[in-house]
Write a protein that binds this DNA or RNA. Sequence first.
DNA 1: CGTCGCATTGATAAAAATCAAACTTGGTGG
DNA 2: CCACCAAGTTTGATTTTTATCAATGCGACG
Lengths: 242, 242
Amino acid sequence: MSNPLSRKLSNIASLTDEESQSISDLCERIEVVPAKTDIISEGDRPDYVHLVLEGWAARSKVLESGKRQFTAFLIRGDFCDLHVTILARMDHAITAVTNCKVAYIPSPELERLTLGNAKLTRALWWSTLVDEAVLREWIVNTGLRSAYEAVAHLICEMHFRSQMVGIVDGDTFDLPLTQEELGAATGHTPVHINRVLQKLRAAGLIDFRGGRLTVRDLDGLEEAAGFESEYFHIRSGSPLTS
Amino acid sequence: MSNPLSRKLSNIASLTDEESQSISDLCERIEVVPAKTDIISEGDRPDYVHLVLEGWAARSKVLESGKRQFTAFLIRGDFCDLHVTILARMDHAITAVTNCKVAYIPSPELERLTLGNAKLTRALWWSTLVDEAVLREWIVNTGLRSAYEAVAHLICEMHFRSQMVGIVDGDTFDLPLTQEELGAATGHTPVHINRVLQKLRAAGLIDFRGGRLTVRDLDGLEEAAGFESEYFHIRSGSPLTS
DNA sequence: CGTCGCATTGATAAAAATCAAACTTGGTGG
DNA sequence: CCACCAAGTTTGATTTTTATCAATGCGACG
């Protein structure tokens, strides 16, 4: 279960050792992408399917004005571009937020693996459907929720997702984002994010410094965010279904 | 080519008569869903794949406060829940905005059609990937763009998508939305939408009344919106690639 | 002809952006 | 070890955008 993708998929499917091994085998070619550089740029036509093994990356759209909006964060076990070979070119960039370890998987190998395995096919479908659900939640974040609620919600999301891949240590996990980057994700200015974070700290919900976030009061945080984890569609037997 | 889905897919793939016919055959069971009622409710576990044949629907998330956010509009040729059978339950509702004609397609029949047909499989993957790209664009709308830009962008999107399925008449098409609904899509209050629409009219970009929108100045509108149609990934030979 | 759902208008308040400066802090090199 | 630097954070003052509240207008429809 050391492979990040296997780890993630195990939240909704029981994988055999062979299946886990096959998934590990896919990740033969691994590259390290330095922070602040593109894993995939807008306009690229990727030959490989990229899988984040380590570190944080972000999908980002940049407008002519130079302003940018993140539309997703990618962590351990997340695909950058599953099935994007279907499309001619990337319509957005994927940028490493921290140094990232990325697996370059040849599409045909992934296809070969899934073709005869309905369970794995379903599991990968689950991951794309959850990605979509997360996108919808981000629309709610930017459209309907206040800055305070949106930041709280984003923290809940990343906390939950980090738990899914086993990178939460007690109540603390990596959130390697500057206030500017938190703003790019929630649609606010860094100055405003700063003030929101102060309120979240003052409310006793979180500690946050040096890229590490500690959840001081999970119930309070989820309440403030209006966070409900159902949209991840974890199977009810999972340890995460508290 | 009378089937809305065939019509849509023909933007990226050349379908044979047999393929078009197979798609039409899928749409055997058709129901009319009255405006303002759910096609699928949150929590449902749909047995069928639902395809909108006629009318407008919206994906919507409702918060405890009662506020709602639309996360997508569905028109002729759009799936409500392609492959959602993978998930246990719907995490959002799909509501008919107008009266809708909806095809109820048994999942196995759709699977049977795509299983042996790589072209159709790719075409359906294209449609889901474009749906995702549209979600990302909505995040940019609500997060980064001003209300004025966001409304302009939404109009551009729906104009383009309406063109893709052949329901634009000259420079006029159906936009059967109240100002409250435009607000639910862009994250603004109806009052503010009203003022934004007045500005768009005053700028000579659009006319809009009675649920019909006329584009008076497409270049100006796209410029105001920062609209670029690349994210639909229409193949370069398509009539829409002007 | 009244009424209901929408659209519009105006006045005011709240949320968030903008602008500008000062403060921390972790790292670097002398 | 210390001074300095750059990146990021924090603070304050001000402006802009958008929400809120409350009426009024209006057109389709029974």
